[in-house]
Nucleic acid binder design. Structure first.
Length: 199
DNA sequence: TCTTCGATTGTCT
DNA sequence: GACAATCGAAGAA
């Protein structure tokens, strides 16, 4: 059984952690079945100064996990129907996190298909709320330690990703944010074909 | 207490 | 490309 990534992995600057999470494996053990996928897309949210971060207006009941220790899950409900999954980064008291926007399904495909309503496989995990649904992630998993081997939700080492295949751009769905935050290139992604080509 | 709106998705035109 | 779904958190009153 592979060990999860260590807590130290989450201590770097949010954008750096977001970049380094590409290629790693998101794992979820619920319903007695292991579901996992290779992380393809992430976004970084960096502190109260970041006009797009949930912590932009200070600490609240909802964003409290962001102010906690690194390596923990920050999962929140939005649009009245969707759960979005993040991992808290940076030392405690500095509110920052990385949102998981897409993964490449690897294990537990049957369960994912059921949870995603039998849509085509390429549509199972190509969005932050979609992957949460495919993995069975809800508020129940909020606050879990992603570096704990005993945790039902965790992140394990995956396949290293060279800079040559990493793309960056502005974050999605944050038109309300003022500049320069709206345009910060804190969204990172890799084409799924890169991993499909790996034996 | 009231109002607004979201780190989205699926459907319809 | 436009827009409804759906509800709790956050901010205003």
């Amino acid at each position: 059984m592979p060990e999860p990534l260590p807590v130290s992995f989450y201590l770097s600057r949010p954008a750096e952690v977001a970049r380094n999470l590409l290629g790693q494996r998101l794992v979820c053990d619920l319903a007695g079945q292991r579901v996992s996928g290779i992380i393809l897309e992430t976004e970084a949210y960096d502190g109260e100064e970041d006009g797009a971060c949930h912590a932009r207006s200070g600490k609240t009941k909802r964003n409290a996990p962001l102010y906690g220790a690194p390596g923990y899950a920050y999962i929140y409900f939005t649009y009245g129907m969707h759960w979005l999954t993040n991992v808290v980064v940076c030392p405690a008291d500095y509110p920052a996190g990385v949102l998981f926007r897409a993964v490449l399904p690897k294990e537990g495909l049957g369960l994912m298909q059921v949870r995603r309503g039998s849509q085509p496989r390429r549509l199972w995990c190509n969005g932050p709320a979609k992957l949460s649904q495919a993995f069975g992630i809800t508020g129940e998993q909020n606050g879990l330690a992603l570096y704990d081997p005993e945790s039902p939700l965790r992140i394990e080492a995956g396949i290293p990703v060279p800079d040559t295949v990493v793309k960056t751009g502005p974050r999605v769905g944050i038109d309300y944010a003022p500049e320069p935050w709206r345009s910060m290139p804190w969204r990172f992604w890799v084409d799924a074909n890169y991993f499909l080509a790996q034996a």
